[in-house]
Amino acid sequence: MKVVITAQGTDLDSAVDPRFGRARYFLLVDTETDACTAHDNEQNLNAPQGAGIQAAQAVTRLGATAVLTGHVGPKAFTTLQAGQITVYLGATGTAREALEQYRAGQLQAAAKANVEGHWS
């Protein structure tokens, strides 16, 4: 399966970006091979509003079935849920470490957003 990890750089050794909607990069990782491709999120990084919703749509288009990140807001969560993507919160360290935390079952699947939405 494929998961997206929000990251501050383009490979698995970069730090996890704790923000979902305004993450610097999305790392699309194949959990069977650890093959990793980086997808720039710069457009949403500078969006005046709706970054979380756009990011959630982007993740859907990448074909991921799970997201590993730090925090997610209500609108992004609703959109990810509509795309049937499981959200794992509280990922820390490098992307590789987050992947290991996920495999070890240390990350909890979120039942709701864990941060407030922002107004534009």
């Binding site: 509003q49 919703i53 756009q54 959630a56 749509q57 609108k75 959109t79 509509a82 049937q84």
Partner: peptide, 23 residues
Amino acid sequence: CAQVCRYRAIACVGERTLIFTEL
């Protein structure tokens, strides 16, 4: 609809179209 919305108030994911009225 999502493409034309410059306020990014509409999301299309799979078979769902979501409208965020606050945006």
